[in-house]
Structures are given as C-alpha cells and as structure tokens.
Amino acid sequence: MSTGEPPAADAGASGDDGRRGRRERALGARDGASTWQPVAPTTETLEVLRQRLPLSIRLIGRSSVPGALLVLAIAAVFIGIVPLAAKLQLNASQATGEVIPVGNAFELTVANDWSVESQDGRATVLASGSSRLVIVPAYRDSRSVTQVVAAEISTVDADGTGSWVVGEPTTFETDRGDQGATVSASSETNATQVWAVSHEGLTTVAVLSTTIESWTSAQPLVQDMVDSIEFADGQGGDGDAGATP
C-alpha cells in the first residue's frame, strides 16, 4: 500500500555511491553548501602534524626499522660513549704519575686517578672523587713522627659532631728510607688518616679525608704517594724549609 510520499532520493542508491551521496548531502546541509569540496591542508597544519610524529619518522622522513635503530644509536652515544670520552679526557688532564714539589723541601709522585686541586705556600691539596689529601710543607719539629700523628688525630677525636673510633699509630719507612708514622679514625659515614714523615729534623704531615665507601680504594693510593716522598739533599739541619703549621 502506497503512503503517497515520494521515495527518498537515495532509495535506489547502493554501495559506495549511496554512502557518498548521503555524506555530501549531510555536509551540504550543515555548511549551507550543496556540494562538499575537499580543502588542502595549510603549511601550518602540516607543521603541527609533523611535530606530532615519532622522533624516528621526523629524523629520516618515514616510519621504518632503520629509523628506530638510528634513534637507539644516538641514545647509545649520549648514554655511553660521551660520558666515557669525558672521563678519559679528565683523566688525561690529571697529574697522574707526575712528580710535584710540596714546598721547598720535598716532592712526591701523584697516584693514579688523583689530581692537584690547589697548591700554595701553606698546603698542597690532591683530590680524587669525594677524597681529599692535604699535605703541608716540611717544618722543623723535634717530636717523633708517632707523637706528631697522635697530636694531629687528637683534634679529630675531640670533634663533637661525630662518633669517631681512633686506631693506634703504626710506623713505616718511605721508599727513600725516611721514618714515618700513621694513624686512622672513622665515624659512621667518614674516615680520615694522618701520616707524618721525618727527614733530618724536618717533618711533613699528610691528612686524608674521605667517605667510608671510598676508603678502601683511596687509602692504598695515598699510602703509595706518602711512600714516594723524597726530600731534597741539604734540606735538613738548620735550613729554612717551611713554616710550622
């Protein structure tokens, strides 16, 4: 039975032609135009879309496995190679293996991974990571090296900011045969060790300050540097070798 209404305009349409016609009429009704016309994207639109693309696609212009590999390669350079190169350059600029004077009376050899941080008439400071070694120029001291290190470590033992455990002084000889003594102390987080070396009436003191974590790696190298101390000939007796600290 007929309703008397005209058939829909797309009643006979089917498939893609029917869907295309409905889409065009809907867009025309919404925009007030009878026919939809595609509009090319502007330069600004393309730039916004480009910035939203993955980094690998922006770098090489297309999405691909080589693009992803390129990104990984760049990341590997910045994560691994650059820091390694920086460390090698830093080590190259350090004074490792160099013989340096301390005051006018003696010199020593800088150990591996240690460098000269500062040097003036009062002290030479060597550094390696969180560790510092302060060495004073030689001065006249009538006390034994054991007495010197005991007096130096007493200032640490009297420090009220930490609970220090102080060891007993021990004696040693440098590579040149000079007499030395050393004593160490440690707290919950830090460690220190004092060395004193005597040569013909002159004495020098070296003090290591470091963390508990760095102690085992720093201490043997500092001992090597102290062992390498070599006094100049004729610096003993009544000559003026340095000021008393």
Rank of each mutant, 00 (worst) to 15 (best):
R23Y: 09
R20W: 10
Q51C: 03
R50F: 11
R25V: 04
P38Q: 03
P54W: 03
W36K: 00
L55S: 03
P38M: 05
T35D: 10
R22P: 00
T45D: 13
R20F: 11
L55Q: 03
G21F: 12
L27H: 04
A40H: 08
R25K: 13
L49T: 01
R25N: 02
E24N: 15
L27M: 09
L55G: 02
R52F: 01
R20M: 13
V39F: 03
E24P: 00
T35H: 14
P38H: 03
T42I: 05
R30E: 15
S56P: 00
R52W: 03
E47W: 06
E47P: 00
E47V: 10
L49I: 04
I60P: 00
V39C: 07
E44Q: 14
R30H: 13
A26E: 15
T43W: 07
R50G: 10
P41D: 02
L59G: 01
R19D: 07
P41I: 01
P41T: 04
A26Q: 13
Q37D: 06
V39S: 14
W36F: 14
A26K: 11
Q51I: 00
V48T: 12
V48N: 12
L49C: 05
E44F: 08
E44C: 02
R19G: 04
L46M: 07
G28Y: 05
R20Q: 13
L59E: 05
